[in-house]
């Protein structure tokens, strides 16, 4: 179930329900082992992502990735990494509840983000993502297409970020 936004909005916003999300930290030298377990090649440059089936991996830093999948696949991911640990130590932590995901959709989505995100959004290509800030709140920003973004925000910051987005969205709708 998604939570719809208010009516007077330029950009369609929604809050996604929780879904399986993991923080993976592993020595860069061991990335191939993790890639093998996941069945996708983990990108090694911050910002890049890779996907297979329901699995999506985004490289956040040289030794840090965030993994997304669906409920049906969660146990398989956890079991695979648990099996990997004795051979190749790493850290896989479930953070499904740590963040909430807001989707932004529409031609003005980037403009809406620019109300509080200092990044040059044209430098974030579709199919990439990054950690950055939104009004000084740390977020993970994924760009799925020219006009589709996801904000992953720490759960306790959600009310603040959501209120800012709503306010700015009404502002965009007002057109001035």
């Amino acid at each position: 179930m998604t939570t719809p936004m208010t009516t007077a909005s330029a950009v369609s916003l929604s809050l996604l329900p929780e879904f399986p999300r993991y923080s993976l930290r592993i020595d860069p030298a061991d990335v191939s082992a993790a890639s093998e377990v996941l069945g996708l090649e983990l990108p090694t440059r911050p910002g890049q992502r890779a996907a297979t089936g329901s699995r999506l991996a985004l490289c956040l830093g040289p030794d840090e990735w965030v993994l997304y999948t669906d409920e049906a696949d969660a146990q398989a991911v956890e079991a695979a990494f648990a099996a990997l640990y004795p051979v190749t130590p790493h850290s896989l932590i479930a953070i499904s509840d740590r963040e909430r995901t807001i989707t932004l959709s529409g031609p003005q989505a980037a403009e809406l983000l620019s109300t509080s995100c200092p990044r040059d959004l044209t430098a974030i290509a579709p199919g990439t993502g990054t950690r950055t800030v939104f009004d000084t709140v740390q977020i993970v920003l994924l760009r799925d297409s020219e006009s589709d973004f996801r904000i992953e925000v720490g759960r306790s910051f959600l009310p603040h970020v959501w209120a800012l987005l709503e306010r700015a969205n009404r502002e965009l709708a007002a057109g001035l």
Binding site: P46, R131, T132
Partner: peptide
């Protein structure tokens, strides 16, 4: 530190 980025 790239605290709100790659963390390094």
């Amino acid at each position: 530190r790239h605290a709100h980025g790659c963390g390094r």
